[in-house]
Simulated assay, not measured.
Amino acid sequence: MLIRKLFRFENAHIVRNCSSDRCKRSIHGHSYQVEVLLEAHALDNGQMVYDFGLMKDDIRNLIDAFDHAVAFWDEDDADYIAACKQFSARWIALPVSPSAEQFSRMFFTLIDRALSLTDMANGEQDVALHSVIVHETATGYAQCFRADIDNPRIGPVDMQRVVFSEQVISEWSDTTLWQRLLRGKRKHNPRVEQQVISNR
């Protein structure tokens, strides 16, 4: 079974080396929508794949980090990167170009890492990230699947090279989120008292 949670954010970028002159030479913004699809072959004690409320913590924080921020490729022109950092308190340095395709891969990588380090506490079973869809416009989106993460033809996604500005980090509900994910520190979901004990 699949479930889907929709998130939104506003972000600015330049997509270098693309065919559109406007996109590759001028900083511009989009109203992004991100669909996170989780799958499981069993339901938890609440008869859900995964409680939507639990997705409002690490997953929402990771996506919201990109809101009202500028995202840039860490291999871009040094003067451009310096200007992004100087004139925006909210910025993210990425090891890939901030295209919709790479955004979908970045979010898949970040969310998958967060889920893999989460100890479930309400009977969840085999919950996995199915895919991530990033809508850049009303008519265009990119969808990332697990096979797209380790695909040598697409290239690696190096989490160690992702850098969030101090302002972004300071606004997270858990300011240790990024270091926790990088260091592989586990997180425990809250325990839930069972109100109804099913005999099935």
Rank of each mutant, 00 (worst) to 15 (best):
L110G: 05
H135C: 09
V157R: 13
A40S: 15
P95A: 05
K85P: 07
W178L: 08
P95S: 05
L177K: 01
Q102S: 09
L182W: 02
V70A: 10
H30E: 08
I197S: 03
H130G: 03
S165E: 09
Q125A: 08
S99E: 08
G46L: 12
A83T: 12
Q160C: 06
A89L: 13
V49T: 11
S97E: 12
A114W: 09
V49C: 03
L181H: 01
P152M: 02
P190I: 07
V49P: 01
E39N: 03
V162R: 01
D150F: 04
S26M: 13
A142M: 08
N45S: 01
N151S: 04
A89S: 15
V132T: 05
F52K: 01
A142Q: 07
R200I: 15
L37M: 12
I14G: 04
R146H: 13
D64F: 12
R186V: 14
F145E: 13
I81F: 05
R186S: 11
N151A: 03
N189T: 10
A78S: 13
D21K: 10
V168M: 06
K24F: 09
P190A: 08
C23W: 10
K24N: 15
A128R: 15
V162Q: 03
E35M: 03
P190M: 07
Q167L: 09
A138S: 14
A93P: 00
Q86I: 05
T109G: 00
F52D: 07
N151T: 03
A121Y: 00
P98A: 06
L54F: 15
K185G: 02
D76S: 14
Y32G: 06
V162W: 04
R191G: 07
K5A: 02
I81E: 10
D174V: 06
V49H: 02
A93L: 03
L115H: 05
L177D: 01
S131V: 07
A42M: 00
H135P: 06
Q33D: 13
K56D: 14
A114M: 09
P152H: 01
K56S: 09
T176K: 09
E39I: 00
H135M: 09
I149Q: 13
S170K: 10
Q160M: 09
L94V: 06
S20T: 13
Y50H: 12
M48D: 05
E136H: 05
A82I: 07
A82T: 13
N199P: 00
N45G: 01
E171G: 02
